[in-house]
């Protein structure tokens, strides 16, 4: 179905944005990894979120999520791989599926870790970011999965299930991808395997990879006071816009981004009905 607003990311910024879209009476879908994979989940104690001291990161996340669910926010687990605007609608691909919305709030956190040697060079020539998308093209062939989330294991199982010979690396530190015209081998933390495909499954895509024309400064999304980016109908909030990488800042930015996105969707609707 079609939504007024689609939120990428289900942490404090994304959930705050979603709650505030609902507060304006608009429909909203949050696409995210499972709650337990949010980096905040592992924070033992957060002491500076106003009025709610001494809660663990997990407890905060659960409260935020419950609030959003009670507000009528729709949820979908998955990773957004691409986004494109056609005729005033944003289309977003999630694994092998697609959703669309009038406005998008980018709240996917920060992409931790830098690219590996060979990653960019072999992208589309053996390097892939989506097992369910490209897996079928590697049937009965040896592949490596570089997993950085718990769901990555499920994707590795999917690849084994369709007949790929899978070597799984769990959160490898240093990898180098080599080959000729296509991938031939990968070395991770000293272990080398001959493969035809390398699946890199990180928790979050870098914002500029999702939106190729997005303005970014030193890795952070450039926004104005309305949390608007340089792209029409795309707003950003939370860690992806820069520091401090803290809950209260994310929640505040999420509120603004949610309101701005709801207003943008309302304006689009008015234009269309004219």
């Amino acid at each position: 179905m079609s939504y007024d607003v689609l939120v990428i990311g289900g942490g404090p910024a994304g959930l705050s944005a979603a709650v505030n879209v609902r507060a304006r009476g608009r429909s909203v879908l949050v696409v995210s990894n499972p709650l337990e994979e949010n980096p905040l989940w592992r924070a033992e104690k957060v002491d500076n979120h106003l009025g709610m001291p001494a809660l663990s990161g997990a407890e905060l996340l659960k409260r935020f999520r419950r609030h959003a669910e009670e507000s009528g926010v729709d949820f979908r687990e998955g990773k957004v791989l691409n986004a494109m605007r056609m005729e005033d609608i944003w289309y977003v691909s999630i694994g092998s599926d697609m959703e669309n919305a009038r406005a998008v709030v980018l709240a996917g956190g920060v992409a931790r870790g830098k690219k590996y040697l060979g990653e960019e060079e072999f992208l589309g020539r053996g390097v892939s970011y989506c097992a369910t998308c490209d897996g079928m093209l590697y049937r009965n062939r040896p592949v490596a999965v570089l997993g950085f989330t718990d769901t990555a294991k499920k994707e590795a199982d999917f690849l084994s299930g369709i007949g790929c010979g899978v070597t799984y690396f769990h959160r490898p530190k240093n990898c180098v991808i080599r080959g000729g015209s296509t991938v031939e081998e990968v070395t991770c933390d000293g272990e080398t395997v001959q493969v035809e495909g390398v699946f890199l499954l990180r928790p979050t895509m870098a914002p500029a990879e999702l939106f190729p024309e997005l303005a970014v400064e030193s890795g952070y999304v450039t926004v104005d006071r309305r949390m608007a980016t340089n792209l029409p109908g795309v707003f950003a909030a939370g860690d992806c816009t820069g520091g401090p990488l803290q809950v209260s800042k994310a929640v505040g930015e999420g509120l603004i981004a949610g309101q701005s996105a709801a207003a943008f969707a309302a304006e689009q609707e008015r234009k269309q009905s004219r």
């Binding site: 791989l81 691409n82 494109m84 056609m86 691909s93 999630i94 694994g95 092998s96 998308c133």
Partner: peptide, 14 residues
């Protein structure tokens, strides 16, 4: 393309 590929579906109208 393939019909299990989300980005392919998005490219289709183009």
């Amino acid at each position: 393309w393939a019909d299990w590929c989300g980005p392919c579906k998005m490219l289709s109208p183009t």
